[in-house]
């Protein structure tokens, strides 16, 4: 709907940032993700939708290295990350937020963000104990960057509060700030508008576009609020029971009979988790 011609152009011209090739994930007998291929172009917003239990979060977990795919390959930029451990994948520029917020509760908002700079900082124990000029410079820069990111997501005022004491909305924002501290090329957001009111969800759409443009990254979004999905996405992929049943622009998806069936045919207006 609001997909501008300009983003369409960048979609075509942009290089592929992430390529997931024929991913299958089995939990015992249950096939949670079945042979799903998928690409994310540069500077784009791609949404992953589907009913509850379709395998969306599982797919995220494969991309971030938390689950190992039963078969298939994931390539981030030029690097094959299929068999890399999570912290390596994160350092290569794949950042995520969690469906259920997972912050470091007893650390301040600022420290939460700094934790995600771990792979960018290099001062070892010796430099930290002695506080060498190099270490102090590095810490100062980290501090500045953390403050900037907190301002960017709009919670600069609570930088020194413990994460667990922030309001729910601020915790969601802090998760994004923390993820951005990885300087990612792909930002995975797992149901970021859960618990937001319609107004907040509306602002969220602008926020996602601002992140995409200012931080020069692509966003992969799991989202249930269809109005958000339709407004924010350059492209949508639909999963149902582990299978990819449709893929295309918001307009394509809106009129796709299989999608309508998947959503309405079985459980009606079931809002999924």
């Amino acid at each position: 709907m609001t997909t501008s011609p300009q983003t369409d152009a960048s979609l075509d011209a942009g290089t592929v940032k992430l390529h997931a090739d024929r991913i299958t994930v089995k939990f015992g007998g249950l096939v949670a993700v079945n042979d799903v291929s998928f690409t994310i172009p540069g500077q784009s917003v791609v949404s992953l939708i589907g009913p509850n239990g379709a395998g969306k979060t599982t797919f995220f977990n494969v991309l971030t290295g938390l689950y190992r795919a039963t078969s298939g390959r994931v390539v981030l930029g030029e690097t094959d990350i299929t068999n890399l451990v999570p912290h390596r994948i994160a350092a290569l520029g794949m950042a995520r937020t969690f469906q259920n917020i997972r912050l470091f509760g007893l650390m301040t908002a600022e420290e939460n963000v700094k934790v995600a700079m771990h792979s960018k900082l290099h001062s070892g124990p010796f430099h930290t104990i002695v506080r060498t000029p190099r270490q102090r410079r590095e810490e100062r820069k980290a501090q500045e960057m953390a403050r900037e990111l907190l301002e960017f997501v709009g919670i600069g005022k609570v930088a020194n509060e413990y994460a667990r004491n922030l309001s729910y909305g601020d915790q969601r924002r802090l998760e994004v700030a923390r993820a951005l501290a990885l300087e990612p090329s792909i930002l995975l957001l797992d149901e970021p508008t859960a618990g937001m009111n319609p107004q907040e969800s509306g602002r969220f759409t602008q926020f996602v576009h601002r992140v995409r443009d200012e931080k020069d990254l692509s966003v992969l979004l799991i989202e249930h609020d269809m109005s958000v999905v339709m407004q924010v996405s350059d492209r949508i992929t639909v999963l149902d029971r582990g299978e990819k049943i449709a893929e295309g622009s918001p307009d394509d998806i809106r009129s796709d009979t299989r999608v309508i069936e998947a959503y309405l045919g079985k459980s009606g207006r079931d809002k999924t988790t």
Binding site: H87, V115, R178
Partner: peptide, 11 residues
């Protein structure tokens, strides 16, 4: 605080 989240943040 949260081992899994830490690893996802590059630790």
């Amino acid at each position: 605080e949260d081992e899994l989240a830490a690893s996802m943040m590059g630790v």
